[in-house]
Design a protein around this nucleic acid. Structure first.
Lengths: 201, 201
DNA sequence: TCCATAGCCATACACCGTATGGCTGACGCT
DNA sequence: AGCGTCAGCCATACGGTGTATGGCTATGGA
């Protein structure tokens, strides 16, 4: 019904948010404007508003779908310390793929408030494993997420020395600090001694 | 020389940045515009540019003077755990007084890169006290700052439950986590047993 | 006295988000 | 076949933004 004069097919929210994300990746949050986005889609700026309430809503859509599609490692039965590290690594990797997106997300934590998100479910599971008591889960997970978020921001924005090895060491320090910290929180849940390898294969 | 027609005295950088900070406090970073600021000072917008290169530079001035004026507790000889907590509390209090300012600062960590800032000097001193080896000071302090920054952002932006006691508990959790984490990092520097109270009074 | 210049301002440009309202053409219904 | 509805799109316009350009004016030094 009255498809764009310049394009063949009608717009879709999917197409809009995909292109918007690309613009953000290229030029940061500031690099995304409704007008540029429309130009990129070969469409009049006002056409976008038939698929999205406003710019803020568009950003919300982009961020929350990114949060929903977060790829985190499953429970592999390993010690919680290892799983916590794996979670942090995965989160970090995801964030680094779309820094501007996560930057906006970190400025608007309410977008990932939903406790059913895979991020929180995973974090809760690991913290339970670590022995964090149930009533403290919410608080502890919030604090941990705040920490990781802070680290990601610092890495994204700051010029942490260009040396990627140094960044790696910083990340390692952060993880060790968090892990020890959680151990300290829960009284005593030190890492179990690595079991003697069953010689197989 | 050709003072403003509408005002008596000439503008000063001091006056500009003070008013700008007030606007930020009232309406966030978005609430500060060169035009509003000029209106507030009863001056033409372009007059500002004789005292400041551009908006970004103005923000940089505001943030870095705030960082330089950070009021942190002095070395009182108490255990490093207590001093670390006191540092965090002070930082947190400062940040909460001007959330928008610190929000911008956290988006531009390069502004407080200077290792001679009181923030870093204090943090280094405490970490040395905690036994962090010299070559790790930079890394560790960066990580710790990232953590605190993450917490401040979460508290500022997120709707951490309105209950201030709950926020307080969250802060406490964060500090304990960090402290235990640092203890874990440095091998062994547990808190010294509190000396038996000399019964006085 | 004259001039350089600090301080200020008027105008203008390019950009932004978006309110308003109108066009077009596909669809369901009679 | 005729008609109305409405999704999709677009043209125009408004009020906001940062700031480049260039001109005015009063003051200090020479």
């Amino acid at each position: 019904m009255a498809v764009s004069a310049r394009r063949g097919a009608p717009l879709t929210l999917e197409e809009i948010s995909t292109t918007a994300l690309r613009l953000m990746d290229e030029g940061g949050v500031a690099g995304l404007s409704m007008r540029k986005l429309a130009a990129e889609l070969d469409v009049n700026p006002m056409s976008l508003y038939h698929h999205v309430d406003n710019k803020e809503a568009l950003l919300r859509v982009i961020c929350s779908t990114a949060a929903q599609r977060l790829e985190l490692p499953p429970d592999d039965g390993s010690p919680w310390q290892d799983q916590l590290r794996a979670l942090a690594v995965a989160y970090h990797r995801n964030a680094m793929e779309h820094p501007a997106l996560w930057s906006h997300l970190h400025d608007h934590p309410e977008i990932i408030q939903d406790r059913d998100l895979v991020l929180w479910r995973t974090l809760y599971r690991i913290l339970r494993l670590a022995g964090v008591p149930e009533p403290e889960l919410r608080r502890t997970s919030d604090v941990l997420h705040a920490f990781v978020m802070g680290f990601v921001i610092a890495e994204t924005k700051g010029h942490l020395p260009d040396d990627p090895e140094e960044v790696e060491r910083g990340f390692d320090t952060a993880i060790r600090l968090i892990t020890r910290g959680v151990e300290g929180l829960t009284g005593l849940s030190p890492r179990p001694p690595t079991p003697p390898r069953t010689s197989q294969g």
